[in-house]
Amino acid sequence: MADIQIDIERCKGCGLCVLQCGHGCLKMSEDTNESGNTYAMINGSKDKCTGCGLCCQMCPDVAISICNEKTNTKKNKS
């Protein structure tokens, strides 16, 4: 299981990552983050995520990471 992390405060709610994930692992939130944007979140459990990183490639705000080192992501609430 890939350890995908979404920094929801960095997310601007564009939805490009959700469109990109062919496994349906991501969805948009119903509520908003502190900036007032809906944000990307895990759709159910992380188990479906293959760690392919295509969502990370699409994110204009570098809000998604897949890291073994814990130091690179902050405020991972999802």
């Binding site: 960095r10 601007k12 709610g13 944007n37 490639q57 699409m58 204009p60 705000d61 570098v62």
Partner: peptide, 12 residues
Amino acid sequence: VTHYCPGCGHGI
């Protein structure tokens, strides 16, 4: 955080 709009290609 960048000043770019949501979905702007500049960030990528």
